[in-house]
Design a protein around this nucleic acid. Sequence first.
DNA 1: CAATAAGCGAGACGGTACGTCTCGTCTTTCA
DNA 2: TGAAAGACGAGACGTACCGTCTCGCTTATTG
Lengths: 193, 193, 193, 193
Amino acid sequence: MTKTRHHGNRHGRSEEARQAVLDAADDLLVERGFAGVTIEGVAARAGVAKQTIYRWWPSKVDILLDAFVGDMNEELTPPDLGSLADDLTTYLPMLAAFLTETDQGAVFRALAGQAQHDPAVAVRFRDECVVPLRARDRLLLERAVERGELDGDLDVEVAIDRLLGPLYYRVLVTGEPITRTFTDELVRDFLGT
Amino acid sequence: MTKTRHHGNRHGRSEEARQAVLDAADDLLVERGFAGVTIEGVAARAGVAKQTIYRWWPSKVDILLDAFVGDMNEELTPPDLGSLADDLTTYLPMLAAFLTETDQGAVFRALAGQAQHDPAVAVRFRDECVVPLRARDRLLLERAVERGELDGDLDVEVAIDRLLGPLYYRVLVTGEPITRTFTDELVRDFLGT
Amino acid sequence: MTKTRHHGNRHGRSEEARQAVLDAADDLLVERGFAGVTIEGVAARAGVAKQTIYRWWPSKVDILLDAFVGDMNEELTPPDLGSLADDLTTYLPMLAAFLTETDQGAVFRALAGQAQHDPAVAVRFRDECVVPLRARDRLLLERAVERGELDGDLDVEVAIDRLLGPLYYRVLVTGEPITRTFTDELVRDFLGT
Amino acid sequence: MTKTRHHGNRHGRSEEARQAVLDAADDLLVERGFAGVTIEGVAARAGVAKQTIYRWWPSKVDILLDAFVGDMNEELTPPDLGSLADDLTTYLPMLAAFLTETDQGAVFRALAGQAQHDPAVAVRFRDECVVPLRARDRLLLERAVERGELDGDLDVEVAIDRLLGPLYYRVLVTGEPITRTFTDELVRDFLGT
DNA sequence: CAATAAGCGAGACGGTACGTCTCGTCTTTCA
DNA sequence: TGAAAGACGAGACGTACCGTCTCGCTTATTG
């Protein structure tokens, strides 16, 4: 059965339109930056009516959140190499590359930026972007606790802040490149070796 | 001397208008957020013509940069208590309060946000906001080097990243409150005690 | 026979839906004016799907034409009092009241208005509204011809224009109220007495 | 002094923009009908920003009223041939041609149409279009009264209705062409000869 | 001590994008 | 197979700001 393109029906939205909007928003963000993502532009690029966008997303931020959440899982799988040192040594450069070099990372940074301007965005940004990312971070540390590599009394949340804070700081504030040397030092420092 | 409000003159700008614009921009940012800072709004609030703003500032970001730089010095003086441990234990909460609770901090966060959206803003943000702030951080560490409390080979820039990165991460990303416990642990960890 | 409301069947259109649409259009026209008659509004008011309207009427004008034609016969029956003078003296105020005070008249005026904007509407308006109304006018005059009260050579169409033109002019152009004095004068003038 | 094109200044509006809007509205009305006159279309055609239109005209009807009033005087000057019979015999075909064949007439008919849909438009239409046109009509009759060709007791307003009503009726309702024969008969009938 | 020229408040201008509204089409499901 | 439901592409609506411009006033030098 060749699924023909449909233009709306009784039971729910057009998945085709949804995906076209998410892709268009993503593309525009990467090509022209956050200000270049306009509802009109997304609609035109996606070949979709503005109203279709407004029907499903309250604002362009919601589109980007949707776009980010959709693809995040595929792009950043934390390693499981058997030792915390190896895992972190591998994972931190991966995370840095994800944040600075991928389209997903561009969306993350745009949302982080918008979160500074709008408290409501900040809430959604944390719930839908930061929390899932930290879940990956936590996974690594919790495996190490199970293996006995870390003290069971460790406050994992604080540990994540201390381990990854410097990395995010460079990404979002100084713009300094994140070298292997830098991440290795962070790991060494964290492990206390 | 009853200085009557003047409407321009041959040589040089009106300091009165300049200050009114900076104040209005600051107020609007705090009251209504970054999107609420419009040139028209600032002009109206400052009792100034739009053209007067455009004559001196290329964009609203430049106004905010101007406003931030002008008052920063007054608000955040690093302590000099004789020992690095004391200095840092005092300074980190000061910095956290500056970033999260003052109008200056609101401007910093707004500019950090906008820096994510616009590379040109990012450059100016780093040069005019981040660099001066880091100069304060560096001052503390360099004094400690002079006192022999820190190794002379220390890469101060990286040290700042590791010491303050977690703090900025909480401010800009997780929104988690920065407690005294948290800063004390950062200091303890940094000093390796 | 408990005729349940049906939602489509294989035996032709729903008369119930048809009447609901015509009534809703009429009501909306009277309540909110021509611009207030939207297909969506009519559908909602009639409890009918938009598509059901589009299936049977090409545009809202067609709905109004349908509504007008349907009820016209009941509202304006020309008198037959035995003399042209009496007939006209009675008929002109009736016609004026029909045009200015009844829902049917409101529909007529709306269609007349729309006829000014759209030549296609103009054609249908004349065929379906003006011609039937003039048939009533003509009836009176032709009866008078048969009775010998009017010259058989009279161009009846032109006569109608001259007799009723001033009345329509007031209705559609000046908005001046049509008094008994005015219609009586028109009749007197027409009869040349 | 060659008046340079200006883009707004302290002392009021751009006459250039005003005229461009009126012309564009007029052109669009003639080319595409009333529904084809959209604010966006007028703005695009006139090379003007939408806001410039909204600044000066509340609605498209106001633009058309403005356009009609501006040019009316040039297009329809009642004759003064010395006798009422000659004046009317000349004037009625002129008026008919004005209403049915000129761009001004198209605007008049469009406004008359819209007046049927909107009472507020009706008021303005009468004040700004009908009254000035009737002033021309009245002029002819009042000159005849002065010359003693008409009874001084004549109710001029009613006389105009009776003389011109049939003409407007054909223009707005039946669409029947207005021949010289028809106007001559109207004049003859009116003069009672 | 006038003439001059720059800065100023004011605000109209050509634009872009906003978020809303209604249009007329299309698809699905039910009776 | 007609009707209800409602998503869809399309496009005009009226608003908010953008950044540019012109204007006439004010004021501090300059000739």
